[in-house]
Design a protein around this nucleic acid. Structure first.
Lengths: 217, 217
DNA sequence: ATAAAAATTTAGATTAGTCTAAATTTTTAG
DNA sequence: CTAAAAATTTAGACTAATCTAAATTTTTAT
C-alpha cells in the first residue's frame, strides 16, 4: 500500500502536469506541498523506485501509467467526498476542500463504490471539476476561460480554476454560481475586465483576474 | 493537535478501562494495539507529559479528564460514522469497523456536527453501543448480558460486546438482530447454553460464549 | 561563451513511532 | 519469605518524512 504522503505527491504531480507543458519541477512540487526542495528530491527518488514516476536527476518528473492511475483514484475520492459534503451535509463549496483532503485517503474501495452510488454517480464536483471514472479516466470537458470569450457571446458557467475560500466567497457575493447562463456585454480594453448579463437581467462586473479562473461553455 | 496514533491509544485505554477494575496495564495495551510493550511504554511517557493520562512507572495507566474527553470524541466520531456506513451506504454491521477506524480520525468539528444532524442525532451505533454526547458524556445503558438472564424472563436484544465479523455473521445466520424481543425458555445446567423463543415463535440455540456477548434489557 | 543566478541534489540531522535485547521491578508460588 | 516468573522499562537501533547547509548542475544574461 502507499502512504498518505505518497498519495499527496502523486496527486500534486498530476495537478501540476495538467497545468503546464512537459515535466514537473522539484521547486514547483515543494511549493505546492509546502515542503522544501530537498524533501521533494527524497520523495521523488522513492516514487521512482516504486515505478510511479519517471524521474531523471535535474530533469523534472512525469507520472507513469500506474502513478497516474493512483493519482486519479485519489482525485476521484476527493471529488466524491466534496459532493457528499455539499449535497448531503450542506457545507458551502468554499468550506469543503480541507476536509476532503483528509477523506480522500480513506482506502476502502467498497466505500468509494457505495459512496458513488449513494450520490447518484455524479459527473462533477461542487467546483465543476469532472470526477475521474472508476477505471481511472479523467473526462474531458472542453471548457474555455471566461476571459477568452468575445463580446456578445452567451455562455454557461461550468467550473472554477481557483478553489480558495476568498475566491469562492467573492463569486457567492456576486451571485454567480455554476450553471448560470450569462452574456458578455462588454470587455474593457484597458484592464480586460468584463461585464456580463445574467438571465435575470442583472449586470455583473467581473475582473480579468476572476474571469481567468471561471470556466464556461 | 494530537496524532492519529495518540488518539488510538486514548481510545484503547478508555475501552480497556471500562472493561476492568483499576489501572490499565502496559501489556494489555500492547496486545490491543498490536504493538510491543516497549513501544507502549514510550507512548505512555509522551501522553503523561501531555497530561492526557495518569501514569506511574510499573503502576499502569488511567485517563485524565482531558484524556477521557478526547477519547470520547474519537469514540463519538467512530460510532457516528458506523451509523452512516450502515444506514446511508448500506454496509452490513459486520463490515464497518475497519473503515470507521480510519474515518474517526478526520478532525473537523463542523463535520461531526453536521454528520450527527444528517443522521438524525442517533443514540446508538449499529452494534447497539451508545454514542457519546457532543459534550463528552458516555450515556449509561444499564444493559445486562443475556448469559445473566434467568429462565422465563422476556428481554430485548440491545447490543453486542464482540464486534468481530465472525460473531456478527453468526448472529445474522441465527436471525438474531438488535431490537428482537426474546424469552429465555431453557438454560442448560451443564454448558450454560440457552434456548430463546423469538416473537415469531422460533426457538434459537445460543451458546454461553455467544450469550456472554449479547446485551439485553 | 562564460559568469552569475537559479534550481536541484547530497550530506547529515531530527522527530514520531516502532522494534529487539537487556535490565529492572513487581507478582506469585512454594 | 524468597526465588522464579511475569510484567515493565531502558538502551540502542530502524524507517518515513522532514529539515538546513553545502555542493552540484542547469539556466540565463550579458
Amino acid at each position: 500500500m502507499h502512504s498518505f504522503t505518497e498519495e499527496n505527491y502523486l496527486k500534486t504531480i498530476y495537478y501540476l502536469a495538467t497545468r503546464q507543458q512537459g515535466e514537473v519541477s522539484t521547486n514547483a512540487l515543494a511549493e505546492m506541498t509546502a515542503t522544501k526542495a530537498a524533501s521533494v528530491t527524497d520523495m521523488l527518488r522513492k516514487l521512482a523506485e516504486k515505478q510511479l514516476i519517471h524521474y531523471k536527476k535535474y530533469q523534472g518528473v512525469r507520472l507513469t501509467e500506474e502513478g497516474e492511475r493512483l493519482a486519479l483514484q485519489v482525485i476521484r475520492r476527493h471529488r466524491l467526498w466534496e459532493v457528499f459534503l455539499v449535497q448531503k451535509l450542506g457545507f458551502g463549496w468554499d468550506e469543503v476542500h480541507e476536509i476532503a483532503e483528509e477523506l480522500e485517503h480513506i482506502r476502502s474501495a467498497e466505500l468509494v463504490t457505495r459512496l458513488d452510488t449513494y450520490l447518484g454517480h455524479p459527473q462533477f464536483d461542487p467546483h465543476g471539476d469532472p470526477i475521474p471514472t472508476p477505471a481511472g479516466h479523467m473526462p474531458e470537458t472542453g471548457y474555455r476561460k471566461l476571459s477568452d470569450v468575445v463580446a456578445g457571446e452567451g455562455v454557461c458557467l461550468r467550473a472554477v480554476l481557483e478553489h480558495s475560500t476568498e475566491f469562492l466567497q467573492h463569486l457567492d457575493h456576486s451571485k454567480l454560481s455554476l450553471g448560470c447562463t450569462v452574456t458578455v456585454s462588454e470587455i474593457n480594453a484597458f484592464d480586460k475586465s468584463v461585464l456580463v448579463q445574467t438571465e435575470t437581467g442583472r449586470t455583473v462586473f467581473v475582473s480579468h483576474e476572476v474571469a481567468k479562473n471561471l470556466l464556461v461553455n
